[in-house]
């Protein structure tokens, strides 16, 4: 008689619901998408009726001028956003790392922008950028300056969405950087202070190098998220004017729903996924290297 040991089965029983849901609603769709990217498929067809076109979708994409444009817009947006947010966020963390009353209240206020729906964030900024009743142009006008075409000029629109993203996500980096700062070993800072290091020296030679591992992971997390931004831009500019703010996620959505070319959209999704995959693997490798180094140092310290 076959008897299953209940203890052997327990972990699988606990894992089963999650595994089933993720297989059906996450892994299968992703596999499906890889397959769909080789098809000429529009939304009114079943997938079986679509024609197999091999690598044509990819070949077309790589030659497509506007796809390349939106690829570069995405890269520009992601790197600009991460760089600026890192500088501002870490700077603020260094400034505010003091014992002040109401710090937890302050942090609560700072995380509000992240919790609000991206759609609503887009709404707020679209209203503030409004050419006539928006607060920015009204202020400019009352100070006697020319109003700025925030969202209607292709030179300004990318800057405008970068500003909105900085407003929403700098707090994320600030909070992580602050947590990193407060977990730094006090002894190192103490020693530096006794040796007469100035404030700036402490920041550049001690605090920042010690925070580096956390900062790099933070930047990578933020970079991955920056490629996912969609709703804020959709509400603010819908990719326009021209293609000046059409980042890749938005282009995927529009290719699928407006141009009704699911195969092409799938091919684009694959390229985006590949890009994110490289970033994530990079983060893993970095983490592993850090862990190994920490383990080695610990071992040396124990032997000594």
């Amino acid at each position: 008689m076959l008897r299953i040991n209940p203890n052997r089965m327990t972990p699988y029983m606990f894992l089963a619901p999650a595994a089933i849901i993720m297989a059906f609603a996450l892994l299968y769709p992703i596999g499906y998408m890889v397959y769909a990217s080789f098809l000429d498929w529009n939304p009114s067809q079943r997938i079986g009726e679509a024609d197999w076109v091999g690598l044509r979708n990819y070949a077309n994409l790589l030659q497509d001028e506007s796809f390349r444009e939106s690829f570069f817009v995405t890269i520009k947006f992601a790197f600009a956003v991460v760089t600026l947010e890192m500088i501002i966020g870490v700077g603020l963390a260094l400034l505010l790392d003091r014992n002040i009353r109401g710090m937890s209240m302050l942090r609560t206020i700072f995380i509000l922008p992240m919790m609000i729906a991206p759609i609503v964030v887009g709404l707020m900024w679209r209203y503030m950028y409004h050419p006539t009743v928006g607060i920015f142009n009204q202020t400019l006008k009352s100070w006697g300056f020319e109003p700025i075409p925030w969202l209607s000029d292709s030179n300004w629109s990318l800057i405008s969405i970068i500003i909105a993203d900085i407003w929403q996500w700098t707090p994320f980096i600030f909070i992580l950087a602050l947590a990193a700062l407060q977990s730094l070993p006090r002894s190192a800072l103490e020693a530096a202070r006794i040796d007469g290091a100035t404030g700036w020296q402490q920041i550049f030679y001690i605090k920042i190098p010690l925070m580096m591992p956390v900062l790099i992971v933070t930047a990578l997390l933020r970079l991955i998220d920056a490629f996912k931004v969609l709703e804020v831009i959709l509400v603010m500019t819908n990719g326009g004017p021209g293609l000046s703010t059409e980042i890749m996620s938005l282009r995927i959505a529009r290719t699928a729903s407006e141009f009704r070319e699911l195969g092409v959209a799938a091919a684009m999704s694959n390229l985006l996924l590949l890009l994110l995959f490289v970033l994530t693997v990079g983060m893993f490798i970095y983490n592993k290297i850090q862990e190994n180094r920490a383990a080695r140092i610990r071992k040396v310290a124990e032997e000594a």
Partner: peptide
Amino acid sequence: TISMSTLMMRMVPPAVLLVPVFGI
């Protein structure tokens, strides 16, 4: 492997799921 692949899944943006989810 399970632990690792769970973590990998975090990077998938909703836009990427749009086409397959719609079709399936």
